[in-house]
């Protein structure tokens, strides 16, 4: 079980690197190529196409086996994510990357609040998770302060 969770840590950290790389490139695109909404929508489209090619056989089977009544939460997740991406590129067009990325990183705190409200009985939130989140966000504020000076 511990090995499975350690793999989860690795996935999450690589994911964080991918997002930061995309933020740096995305910032440049909002200045040079297109408006934030156009960038977010087409990057979503291309992301979908490549992800579909990679996951298609398994995904199609899984979607086919999922009753339509179970689609509600994934549709809400998709809409939330879509709004997040759109606001993300809009914010990149209005402020520097070093300001936007730390602010967006407050989302673990919002996640903890939402998880407390919606995920009762599904996952527990320990004191260590909360303390760790506070440390991460404190570090982000330090970086933001350092970049401001």
């Amino acid at each position: 079980m511990n090995r499975i969770k350690n793999i989860g840590v690795i996935y999450a950290v690589i994911s964080a690197f991918m997002y930061s790389l995309a933020a740096v490139i995305g910032k440049q695109l909002t200045e040079d190529i297109a408006s934030p909404l156009v960038i977010s929508s087409f990057s979503l489209l291309f992301g979908l196409l490549v992800t579909f090619v990679v996951m298609a056989p398994k995904a199609i089977k899984e979607i086919g086996q999922t009753p339509i009544k179970n689609w509600t939460t994934i549709v809400i997740a998709g809409l939330c994510s879509s709004c997040g991406v759109m606001f993300y590129f809009l914010s990149l067009s209005s402020a520097p990357v070093v300001v936007v990325t730390p602010i967006i990183s407050i989302y673990p705190l919002i996640t903890i609040v939402l998880a407390f409200l919606f995920l009762k009985g599904i996952e527990t939130i320990s004191l260590r998770t909360i303390l760790g989140t506070i440390l991460v966000i404190s570090g982000i504020i330090f970086i933001l302060f350092g970049n401001g000076n």
Binding site: N70, T73, I74, I76, A77, G78, C80, S81, S82, C83, G84, V85, M86, F87, Y88, L90, S91, S94, A95, V99, V100, I103, I104, S105, I106, Y107, P108, I110, T111, V113, L114, A115, F118, L119, I122, E123
Partner: peptide, 19 residues
Amino acid sequence: LAICAASGFAGSAVFIKLS
């Protein structure tokens, strides 16, 4: 806008877990 984006990502994470 960044705070709105953070809220969207947080909502997505929670509903993905539910899904």
